[in-house]
């Protein structure tokens, strides 16, 4: 359940932005999550609801934007969509695959007032 920690980090980013940019209430949070990121979305939603109680993001809508995993073969340099970390290169079958996208988690933007 590191999703609780991630939810706390998310709230901290939001509160820091609130202090800097002078908003006191958050209505919507757009969060980008890579398909290969090590996170369980439902747990993160639950964690977000729990940690935001009594904060400026209480009852904010959490919009999760899922981004596709991307890999590049270390042997033939082919780029391809990667849906799991144990997949091999579809062109040459090699397992030396570098993850080039879709493994991050970032707060994109907020709707605030």
């Amino acid at each position: 359940m590191h999703e609780i920690s991630l939810a706390e980090s998310m709230l901290q980013l939001i509160e820091d932005a609130g202090h800097q940019q002078g908003f006191t209430r958050v209505k919507t949070v757009w969060l980008e999550i890579g398909q290969l990121a090590c996170v369980e979305q439902e747990s993160l939603r639950f964690g977000f609801d729990v940690v935001t109680r009594g904060s400026i993001a209480e009852q904010a809508r959490l919009e999760i934007i899922e981004t596709a995993g991307q890999g590049r073969c270390g042997k033939c340099a082919q780029s391809f969509p990667l849906t799991a970390l144990y997949e091999s290169c579809p062109a040459c079958g090699n397992y030396d695959v570098e993850v080039t996208g879709g493994d991050g988690m970032r707060v994109k933007e907020l709707e605030v007032e």
Partner: peptide
């Protein structure tokens, strides 16, 4: 009136940035 005070703030910050 709510709608008129709403605005969008760009953040683009990694959840693990602090750690």
């Amino acid at each position: 009136t709510d709608v008129s005070t709403l605005r969008i703030v760009k953040l683009e910050q990694d959840l693990l940035a602090k750690n």
